[in-house]
Design a protein around this nucleic acid. Structure first.
Lengths: 201, 201
DNA sequence: TTTTTGTTTAACAAAAATGTTAAACTTTGT
DNA sequence: ACAAAGTTTAACATTTTTGTTAAACAAAAA
């Protein structure tokens, strides 16, 4: 690599790490593998991020912000119920179809690393209260079949995230190519909406 | 530990490994941590399982069999549609409430280990065809809102597995104790059934 | 042109994890 | 009592990964 200006290389490395962790799901990836993916020397990773833990924490924080801003942005907008849910699903899937293992990474970090859990608790969790209030309003206003906003939220998250996390499993059991898997996920946009709104599909 | 007969220690070690991986979600756990959990010497793990990879493959295979036998057993029984789905959900949750990260382990292994993927492809994936046929029958016979058996299956799996995998996330955002989390999951038995059958709850 | 910044290389130290081995000890069965 | 099987201990070799450093090099900026 030839002399990138300022923080562009930092970004390059972060993107490489995200590719390895979020796209390829290589949860045990070491510094060398990330350096290879970035096409730079391993020493450069330490130059920018000091150590492995910090690099992971940085991309974790960006993933958390990414992931949860999606929902808050759409759900606090001025749309109808259907459009809010629809936009959330559409945007989430479009945004993360190429990062299927991002949620798995977040889950794993929060589960296994106390610092990551604190990061989640401080920066992410508080916003969920806001989100739950919003969902409760939706349920009342639209007389939804679901009554419990927490369960509603987890249902939605389950239907969106699990099929991404289990990309390999799904491809394996249905014998899907990458394109077929992608189509399967795209088809879910409408299906998830219908399930959440209790409609036929 | 004092002189266990035959394969009882083997079992003890496997149970310890399952506790570490499936209950605690410590996906990066090393041999020493597993030995500690089992209360035996690390050398004993090698004595019984030769190396780390084999130990993991053994508990992976048992987990796969466990996990998928649940569905096939219930879904090919003589019950009504509602009871089949209900039994599947009930049994799955009861069986794996204490192994919330089992699915995460399977997913991770299949994603990152070629041998694990082959194990899945050879022993587990074929049974899904059987399962899909069963689901298609159910959909036709009961005129279900869902028409696509594959999407139906993934919906069900999502609603069951994701909330277990994200135990820590859920506990974090809802500020749940272990008991409260458990109750939240137990409440889902009915909720998942209602969502899958498009009923009010 | 000189200086600064970014980057590579290579070598190294240190730590962590894995896998192996031999010896001793304990329990069980014969 | 003896043998066999199970288990522990401790030491060791090997491998892998991490983190550090110094020197050289390239490109941009001054």
């Amino acid at each position: 690599m030839s002399h990138n200006t300022d923080s562009e290389t930092e970004k390059l490395i972060k993107e490489a790490a995200k590719k390895v962790f979020f796209s390829q799901g290589k949860i045990h990836a070491n510094m060398q593998e990330i350096a290879d993916e970035a096409g730079v020397n391993r020493a450069l990773l330490h130059y920018y991020f000091r150590n492995r833990e910090r690099l992971l924490l940085v991309i974790l924080e960006e993933a958390m912000i990414d992931s949860h801003q999606v929902m808050i942005k759409v759900l606090t907008s001025n749309m109808s119920l259907e459009d809010k849910i629809k936009s959330t699903i559409d945007y989430m899937i479009d945004r993360f179809i190429d990062y299927p293992y991002m949620q798995a990474f977040i889950i794993n970090e929060v589960t296994n690393n106390e610092n990551s859990r604190l990061l989640h608790e401080r920066h992410i969790a508080p916003f969920f209260n806001q989100l739950l209030e919003e969902i409760e309003k939706l349920i009342k206003q639209n007389n939804l079949a679901h009554k419990n906003s927490k369960q509603f939220l987890i249902n939605l998250m389950s239907l969106m995230h699990y099929p991404l996390i289990s990309k390999k499993i799904i491809s394996n059991i249905f014998n899907y190519s990458d394109d077929e898997y992608k189509q399967f996920i795209m088809d879910r946009k409408e299906i998830i909406l219908n399930v959440m709104l209790q409609r036929k599909n």
